[in-house]
Amino acid sequence: MNGTGRIQVARKVVGVGSVGTRAWVLLMDTLNGVEPLFLQAKEAQPSVLAEYCGRSQYANQGERVVTGQHLMQAQSDIFLGWTRARGDDGVDRDSYLRQLRDWKFSAPIEQMIPEGMTFYARMCGWTLARAHARSGDRVALAAYLGGSNAFDEAIADFAETYADQNERDYAAFQAAVDDGTAQATTEI
């Protein structure tokens, strides 16, 4: 890095939600080697909604992702940014960057008592609703939802139906493992 530090890059294997995209881990360091910084660069492809809603107003897909995160997050990673870089294959690709570990925390839900789980679910719902409310016109959203319980009940019905479907899917998976048409392991 211009004689002031060094950088090392490694390809990162991504999770299910990012299959088919490139991800990199960047180790950035000062000359004294005391203050390492790990960043993640993730490829940002055009939105799946572009086909239905039109092209993004952003020329860089990484900027589109970062702008969306800024809209939905009360406080974003201070290293959140975007870039365009040419790959080994000669193709320019858009990416967004962030800290590799953003120190997200999750409560140990498997250890919760029912009252704790209720509180935790309420806080998760509140946080999600707040994030979505930040992404649009809160007055228009409130007017759309109205003052009745219709939306609340519809969401609760959907959640119950979804949970029931998960139980049916898991039962079908267990049956497939039992009859040998699928394999499963817990030794990972």
Score class of each variant (00 low, 15 high):
A74M: 05
R168G: 02
C53M: 15
D94H: 13
A23Q: 00
G15W: 08
T67E: 07
Q183Y: 11
R11L: 05
D137P: 04
V91E: 09
G62R: 13
Y96I: 08
A184L: 08
E35T: 13
L97A: 04
A150R: 07
V19Q: 15
G5L: 12
L39H: 02
Y52W: 13
D92Y: 12
E160Y: 11
L26G: 00
L39V: 01
N32L: 10
L49Y: 13
I78V: 14
L49G: 00
V16P: 02
T118V: 11
E187S: 06
A131N: 13
P108W: 13
R93C: 06
G116F: 03
D92I: 11
D169P: 10
R55E: 14
T21I: 12
N60A: 10
Q8H: 15
P36S: 11
I7F: 11
W24H: 09
S95R: 13
P114R: 00
G33V: 02
R55W: 05
N60G: 05
W126M: 09
M1L: 09
T30D: 15
E187M: 10
D88R: 05
V177H: 01
A133Y: 04
A171D: 13
Q111E: 02
D157T: 15
K42P: 09
N32M: 07
D94K: 10
A175V: 05
Q73S: 01
G3R: 01
T118D: 05
N2L: 14
I109G: 05
K12Q: 04
Q183E: 12
N149I: 12
V177G: 06
L141H: 02
I188P: 00
P46S: 10
L145Y: 07
G125D: 05
M1S: 07
M28N: 01
R22L: 02
A184T: 08
R98F: 07
W82E: 10
G136H: 12
T67S: 09
G5D: 11
C124R: 04
D152R: 06
A10S: 08
